[in-house]
Nucleic acid binder design. Sequence first.
DNA 1: TTGTAAGCGTTATCAG
DNA 2: CTGATAACGCTTACAA
Lengths: 337, 337
Amino acid sequence: MNIGEIARRAGVSRSTVSYVLSGKRAVSEPTRQRIQAVIDELDYRPNANARALKEGRTRTLGLVIPPASQRLTDMQLGFVASVVEAAARADLDVLLSPSGGDHDRSFERIVTGRRVDGVILMEIRLEDDRVTRLRQSRLPFVTIGRTAEPTGTSWVDVDYEGLIARCVHHLADLGHRHVALVNRSAELVAAGYGPGHRALAGFSHAVAERGLTGVDLCCGDDAPAGEAAMSRLLTTRPEVTAVATINEAALPGVQRALAAEGRLVPRDFSVVGVAAAHWAEDFRPPLSAADVPTLEMGAEAVALLLERIAAPTAAPRHHLYQPPISLRASTAPPPPP
Amino acid sequence: MNIGEIARRAGVSRSTVSYVLSGKRAVSEPTRQRIQAVIDELDYRPNANARALKEGRTRTLGLVIPPASQRLTDMQLGFVASVVEAAARADLDVLLSPSGGDHDRSFERIVTGRRVDGVILMEIRLEDDRVTRLRQSRLPFVTIGRTAEPTGTSWVDVDYEGLIARCVHHLADLGHRHVALVNRSAELVAAGYGPGHRALAGFSHAVAERGLTGVDLCCGDDAPAGEAAMSRLLTTRPEVTAVATINEAALPGVQRALAAEGRLVPRDFSVVGVAAAHWAEDFRPPLSAADVPTLEMGAEAVALLLERIAAPTAAPRHHLYQPPISLRASTAPPPPP
DNA sequence: TTGTAAGCGTTATCAG
DNA sequence: CTGATAACGCTTACAA
């Protein structure tokens, strides 16, 4: 079923059919109706590839996600969902590419196959090969997260550095003197994962600024890792009275370790961090935390990408999110010594 | 950058370039090398759309996911990840379509836009418009989950009916006489969501077969809903000593409600069900449960789809998974009355 | 108001 | 062993 067939059945030329489809040229009402009737009858829709070939644009966005081998976190999933949703609202399709390493066939297909008008990249490292690759291609792209030197690219990111600093200040204000940072996994941090590094930087600065003692630890992205890390912390550093964290998936484990040691939150121990709302609300008591606005960020990433596609030479823009810390019930002054 | 440019620079015809790319025709070693050098230098890769147009196939699979508005469950996410991964292994790209209702533009684009060689559908209802729609198109498709009458389509699914029945039998064997089913949300069940209905059927049959009393309840897919449902159950039906569930996301809430009522698992109360391994392992004590093999199922869905694409007229196949119930530590005989 | 025809970047057939 | 050339299905000047 192609446009020629419709034209034949309606007794018109292909261009006329094309014009009733696009509305880019006036078509007399009778012919328009006749053609439309045929289209409806055969449920015809133009071949998207042929159209893309002719128009030079695909109406498709590429979304590069971390490989599935490591389970996606809730936050990553939130980004995927919101990007797809925002794209759908703009009548754009999304082509998914799971890719980690740099010799990635799927990623290369996306970049050089001209199947997409632009790309959104997630899980950005401070030094990121994929960003380098995309920069040297002419393909518009936007990153969720940012490299160490993001100038010249469009991005959205969460201000982990500022947020964690604010958490530490909040704890210091309450009187805590010994605080800890529960970071993401050691592998991630070693690989130069931005949020891990920036959270640590914010933590270190704030701790120094307030004259606290701070200990930072890496922790896998799941409850068992959180439990292990936390119980180790509680036994090796009993003086610590509060933690800040960016590792939401570890929270259930953190909770269990605290419970196992008989430390009541917030009476004996305070917890604060950045985490998706449902993790925070599932904590007992509800966790004071900055909620990462994944929905908004995904939509904004799409918007920025559409800008870049429309005006590739315009100055890139970015959006650094610093969501407020929702005070719930997990922080209090430290217990008397 | 196109094939003509490569041909020009290498001083050969476009067809020769095409043939060194595809290897479908012998090319003399010197010219091959010359052409390859130009290709490498310019990092040329053929335009996937043009190729798709010419070849009549897109090397792309469509994956229809539930709309992002409702957060995807871990299981759904597992399917998405495994499908994308399996497709990537076969050098196929995946086009995502978030679609719920039937007037869905994104879904229609996938079905009629000829941008994909086949489609994988998730979250199948017993009566599913999308399946109906795909059946009447000529597009090969595979469903993860199945309709009430799946004959004639290829699918993979989990045998919720059999699995929940086995759970009930297990509880009956231990001596439980009053058991409950914690199902998925009322909306989902009302919408004809297959697993909800099949789990209920399996539950009802097994309960009847063993002469037990059974109560079934719907429960939203999150911890707060689980907590609410469970504490209601414990107060209104104090005689119930065990639950079976297919609602993994409710488990943390179930746990909390049990703890709040002072019911110790498994001494006072048994819990069993079907849930992803990490949910089961996060339960305290670890939950006896059948683990849904999402990774395997996603890969199998892709394999079945490739079969259908290769041989559209061959008999459709399916694969009903009945993973074993991993006995962990959450079931025991009921407490003495 | 409509039709003709060129061309988007490929691949494959047919000659040479 | 290689080169023209005709499709694939569409859009869009340019003609009429």
